[in-house]
Design a protein around this nucleic acid. Structure first.
Length: 436
RNA sequence: GGAAGCGUGGCAGAGCGGUUGAAUGCACCGGUCUUGAAAACCGGCAACGUCGCAAGGCGUUCGUGAGUUCGAAUCUCACCGCUUCCGCCA
């Protein structure tokens, strides 16, 4: 949520920043709404003040044993007018709020304007692209040959955009998550957390998924209350740890790392990335979240992005770092770096991490504050994937593939796989063998 | 699932329906004392909103929502959450 004071005092500036996202802010409508609010609120508060003073007088008169009948009848005359004003004000504020809540964050001044991913700016490139003296296979083919990826069975169990892993591939997937968690906790100073995978609407409002993006979520209705939602990212439960909290300065920064499955309906992406594990309704992700004070938040974004990059570097996967243009950023973000890993079979870089700074946009919705001397001030929130586990698996299968169908295990992962150096190709077996 | 109890400021914890936004303690901020610190003492200190150039004024808020009343932290109802005991259980 944007700072309402900023909106009132610098509408032109807000409109101009939002325009870099390609958004047209209707200044006239806002100003009409604002002046109506001001009138109504002032009038209502005047009536309330009048009622309060008169009621106080009654108390004084009665305690002196004097007659208060005259004042009492005067007060009761206010009642109807006041109620009418209060109701009108409440209705207006509901409308006002509904409008505010749908405004995206202002892009930071360092963010290039632009409409789509074609306007994103490459900031850095790391690693050497692998070369192959045999026809390159994609992860679907490699995984099936290893007997470790089985999309057909996942479709049977649930439907499209789900996957099933077995044997060494399932273990590699688990190893990746462990490796990421260990690196971030042991080398980057994050605290590991385990969180609920179902959250309430308030939490999704806090991080900005609701009310605008409900169709992207899986909703779980409940007979006896508001629905729960499956988390689309660990960002939601982890950031909401500080909702309605006032933190002591010396408790900051908070740095959390959290491995969870993520659930996304992928509404609106029909036909995109339908093959393989790239775009799934369910995928694992290791998420980094930092809760910081405003003065060091921008360094924190750089640091957090570096932590995510370190995983790619240790895995020796080639990647590039992109600065997203205003139009390609998420709703709540002020600035976002995407890390894109090289996928040989697609002959392209694909997003594997997204690291964003939200300034106080989420904190304002969350009422997440810290005590700065005598004053309570809004925190800043930052998060990023460190990394998307499924896509990392895809990148390893493709970048580390060998001519014989085997896949070399990156050195840093071998301790997690009992020293295994290669995932060996297996003759294809029925999915129903030895399952129970 | 059954029973009882409880939700008040950063924390702990008082609070007859009426000049109570709320005692007290801790924490915090300023000061006195001290070479410095601690202790002691003195003073200050809720949030949010709104009007105002400012000083300051006004409004709302004691889990949430409705109700009673001229007036609610205080009374009534519903909901949410927490605690304890019993039962059940991965």
């Amino acid at each position: 949520m944007l700072d309402i004071q900023l909106l009132r005092t610098q509408v032109a500036f807000v409109a101009e920043r939002l325009a870099t996202r390609g958004m047209i802010f209707d200044t006239a409508t806002f100003e009409t709404l604002e002046s109506a609010r001001k009138d109504l609120q002032t009038r209502t508060q005047e009536l309330q003040a009048k009622r309060n003073t008169l009621s106080k007088q009654i108390g004084i008169l009665k305690s002196k044993g004097e007659d208060a009948a005259a004042v009492m009848s005067e007060v009761s005359g206010i009642g109807e007018d006041l109620t009418r004003n209060e109701e009108a004000l409440m209705a207006l504020q509901t409308r006002y709020n509904a409008f505010l809540v749908t405004l995206p964050n202002l892009p930071h001044e360092s963010v290039p304007s632009g409409k789509s991913e074609t306007d994103n700016v490459e900031v850095a490139r790391y690693g050497v692209l692998p070369t192959f003296d045999f026809p390159v296979k994609d992860h679907v083919e490699i995984g099936e040959q290893l007997g470790g990826l089985d999309f057909a069975t996942a479709v049977k169990i649930t439907g499209s955009r789900f996957s099933l892993m077995k044997g060494s591939v399932a273990r590699l997937h688990r190893a990746l998550a462990q490796f990421m968690l260990n690196t971030h906790t042991e080398e980057h100073g994050y605290t590991e957390v385990y969180v609920p995978y179902l959250v309430n609407p308030e939490s999704l409002f806090g991080t900005g998924q609701l009310p605008k993006f409900e169709e992207d979520l899986f909703k779980v209705p409940r007979a006896d209350g508001p629905p729960f939602y499956l988390i689309p990212t660990a960002e939601v439960p982890v950031t909401n740890m500080v909702r309605d909290e006032i933190l002591a300065v010396d408790a900051l920064p908070l740095k959390f790392v959290c491995h969870t499955p993520c659930f996304r309906s992928e509404a609106g992406s029909a036909g995109r990335d339908t093959r393989g594990m790239i775009r799934q309704h369910q995928f694992d992700k290791v998420e980094l979240v930092q809760i910081v004070t405003p003065e060091n938040s921008w360094e924190a974004l750089e640091a957090l992005t570096g932590h995510a990059e370190m995983i790619l570097q240790k895995l020796e996967l080639p990647y590039r770092k992109m600065l997203l243009c205003a139009g390609d950023m998420g709703f709540s973000a002020a600035k976002t770096y995407d890390l894109e890993v090289w996928l040989p079979a697609q002959n392209a870089y694909r997003e594997i991490s997204s690291c964003s700074h939200f300034e106080s946009f989420q904190a304002r919705r969350l009422q997440a504050r810290y005590r700065n001397g005598k004053k309570n001030e809004l925190l800043h929130t930052i998060n990023g994937s460190g990394l998307a586990v499924g896509r990392t698996l895809v990148a390893i299968l493709e970048n580390y593939q060998n001519a014989d169908g085997s896949v070399t295990v990156p050195k840093v992962l071998r301790p997690y796989l009992g020293g295994m150096e290669k995932l060996m190709s297996k003759p294809s077996t029925s999915t129903r063998d030895k399952t129970s």
